[in-house]
Design a protein around this nucleic acid. Structure first.
Lengths: 224, 224
DNA sequence: CCCCAACTGTGATTTAATTCACTGTGAAAC
DNA sequence: GTTTCACAGTGAATTAAATCACAGTTGGGG
């Protein structure tokens, strides 16, 4: 059965991160009309070893038919269920600058189980307006809108000032996850999670890797 | 001495990633006028253990004065040198959509050692125009501009179609690093590096973490 | 001038992640 | 029906990362 052992089992974060990659590859296979796939095929596609793929999946239960391999559709659905994205989750964006507007315009979230339902900003020129179909609220109404629209996660693209306060208020209002593009040190209350995305840091990593003269890469972002 | 052991030593990628965080915290300390810092102070600031911080730094040589701790300015400079961002590195953006324009408008890269000098797009309505001070070239001129402007890294925000071809051409023209926002499986020639940023994947991770009911987080993005 | 306190750098240890290697299974071939 | 083959799942082994714990050092205080 595909039922995942989601009770208090110890699940490593690297595994969860790879799950996203697997699911993405499975979606592509599904689009190509492929219905089942073997561990070594999928592993080659995403650049991991077959053993690791099998180990990752085994964390959540047993999926595969021995002779047919893994059912593409079923495995994709199961991963969605593990993520909790089998039903659309409501997000809001804090900070309607260039990046915020880019995210509001991005069409790819719904296919991954997320829906941006609101935006917030301090700028009175922006509040009240509608961006890509979503209303921009003043920050005063943060708690109210979070509660009304059942917002589970916040995407932070605002200015650094007052960021910590926004996080604390949102957490108190029931938000548990924060995706943070703002290069600023923050903390979240226990039970909440924050995932920083530091674009400059990624560039620094690339610069570091590129800089060492064509020596053996310790580990690359893809297969060597 | 602060001279780093940058000869063929084995350096773990997790360490390099934390270096970005350390440097960022050091910049903040520098702004506050603080000149030296002890491992336990800096460690607390960024959410790692003092031992890990010391171990990370020791990878690159020996920095610290035992009684004064680490010299903020010197250590920040040393990290820049390790990254190779002590001199500005030229970047170009491929794909001048919402995200591409947001990155072009972002003011924070120069302070981290990066300068966007050009943009590329397929759309004839965009090529020839200037976005936030940078010219947008047609993709035909990719090799030419890379070579003329000494572009070391590419930021990919285009449509998935033709992405692999762009990577291959850019790599042949001398680009060694790619920051990829496009949710598409790609490969790079050996000696090149690609760093994917999958925003939806980060949201999935957050959703997974939030979903498990307030149980002990296996590991969080910040200190527990 | 010498002792004390506190810190860095690092060998040793522990913990986590990955890979290896084999077992049992199920479908297909004959 | 039986044999064969290839694969999923998994304990065991290996490798990598993080933590512990201490030796050696340096500045400050008496």
């Amino acid at each position: 059965m595909a039922a995942a052992a989601r009770n208090g089992r110890k699940i490593s974060l690297p595994t969860v991160e790879r799950l996203s990659i697997y699911r993405h590859a499975l979606e592509e296979l599904h689009h190509e009309g492929i219905e089942s796939v073997h561990s070594h095929q999928l592993a080659a596609l995403v650049g991991v070893t077959p053993a690791q793929l099998r180990r990752d999946l085994a964390t959540f239960g047993t999926f595969g038919n021995i002779a047919r391999g893994y059912d593409v559709r079923q495995m994709s659905d199961t991963i969605s269920r593990i993520f909790g994205t089998d039903e659309l989750q409501n997000l809001a964006i804090v900070g309607v600058g260039y990046l915020g507007q880019a995210l509001l315009a991005y069409q790819g979230f719904e296919g991954r189980g997320f829906r941006i339902v609101a935006a917030f900003d301090v700028d009175p020129d922006k509040t009240g307006r509608v961006f890509a179909g979503r209303r921009c609220y003043p920050l005063d109404e943060l708690e109210e809108v979070i509660s009304e629209q059942a917002i589970r996660m916040l995407v932070l693209t605002s200015h650094p000032e007052g960021l910590q306060d926004i996080i604390d208020r949102a957490a108190a209002a029931g938000v548990r996850g924060f995706l943070n593009f703002v290069p600023k040190m923050t903390t979240v209350p226990s039970g909440c999670f924050i995932e920083p995305i530091d674009i400059s840091a990624k560039l620094e990593k690339l610069s570091f890797l590129s800089g060492r003269e064509a020596s053996s890469p310790t580990r690359s972002a893809n297969k060597p």
